[in-house]
Write a protein that binds this DNA or RNA. Structure first.
Lengths: 196, 196
DNA sequence: GTCTATATCCAGATAGAC
DNA sequence: GTCTATCTGGATATAGAC
């Protein structure tokens, strides 16, 4: 057929990812995940015996790396880093507006929610962000020599993007993401000039 | 006495602000607000007949401007903007670590949670952030001539700070905030140099 | 205005028929 | 492995005694 539906386990994971991203951890009910996935309620506990917490950790550790690969795919072939960064932020802005300001970072809302309330999930988010920084360091190291500078640029790229998502989603306006992109380009330009 | 307890209404608002900041909107129960404030449950509805949503909007519109004034107090007397910015980020890092990585932005968690789920609260967060940007623009305009540049710096300061809070809270490490501060200083230095 | 008791609903989680 | 029915607790919200 080629149009076969994904299996139940996959549908549950996809529904969970979508709902956790939009509504957060306490704001998402397992019943709504069952409804959205089309799976019977009991199947959630069949596939995820650890319940809501296990499903959230699975979502964090799956969608976090996926999102990083998505962003990386926009910049990894770059020959001009400044141009690539500007385009990547513009693409993020376009995606956000196209999804009615819902599909920004898949784990940011949960990360803030669990930071002071759920140690297991907090660690999961911390490890995802740490991986993002590492991947970013390797990318920026192509253009700047100093490892500390590459690290600061990688962190700043993530921080600007996350902060921009916050302002853009609240205002329902893509403009902050474009502004963040211009700042990231300026930061990178200065760092590369000093490195040369 | 001088040690008189604040009135019930004030205690409810303070407890709500603290709990919403740490646990978010769906993650905070009115019962826990009553318990934390020492007020009887019914008093919440006596003072806030609109219930949880009214209490959250009150928190957003009160603590948002308060937090801005706190940050502004760190930089408004500045003669050297770069030094002031660096010190302000360092102060934010120290406060976060001193409060066990709980007291970052009072409205960021709620802002992400309600962005796609509660229009009334989403608008409240958007208006708070818009005010922050306006105040930031006026501060940066002291050092750069171009209004668009001042606006971009103001937005970037907020975005870097919010993104840094996210990474720092997740990792339980103040380092991202220091990195954000260095990036903000670099961005501002470049903008001022071009303005001169 | 303070405080308690309760109504109503929905959450997470489980048992067990099929 | 699929699906339904249910348990238990806690949520928001309200009624009403004091």
């Amino acid at each position: 057929m080629g149009t076969a539906q994904p299996d139940t386990r996959t549908r549950i994971r996809e529904a969970a990812a979508m709902l956790f991203r939009r509504n957060g951890f306490p704001g998402t009910g397992l019943k709504s995940i069952a409804a959205e996935s089309g799976a019977p309620f009991g199947s959630i506990y069949h596939f995820f015996p650890g319940g809501k917490e296990q499903l959230a950790e699975d979502t964090i550790r799956t969608t976090g790396p996926e999102y990083m690969r998505l962003v990386l795919s926009l910049i990894e072939e770059a020959t001009d880093p400044l141009e690539a960064l500007g385009e990547a932020f513009d693409a993020a802005a376009a995606t956000l507006a196209a999804t009615d300001y819902a599909d920004a970072c898949p784990i940011a809302t949960m990360a803030l929610e669990v930071a002071s309330t759920n140690e297991r999930l907090r660690i999961a988010t911390a490890e995802v962000f740490a991986d993002w920084v590492e991947v970013g360091i390797r990318w920026f190291a192509r253009w700047v020599d100093d490892p500390a500078t590459a690290r600061e640029l990688a962190q700043s790229m993530i921080m600007l993007l996350e902060g921009a998502f916050l302002l853009s989603r609240a205002a329902r306006d893509p403009e902050p993401i474009h502004a963040a992109g211009r700042s990231m380009v300026a930061l990178t330009r200065t760092a590369i000039e000093r490195s040369a």
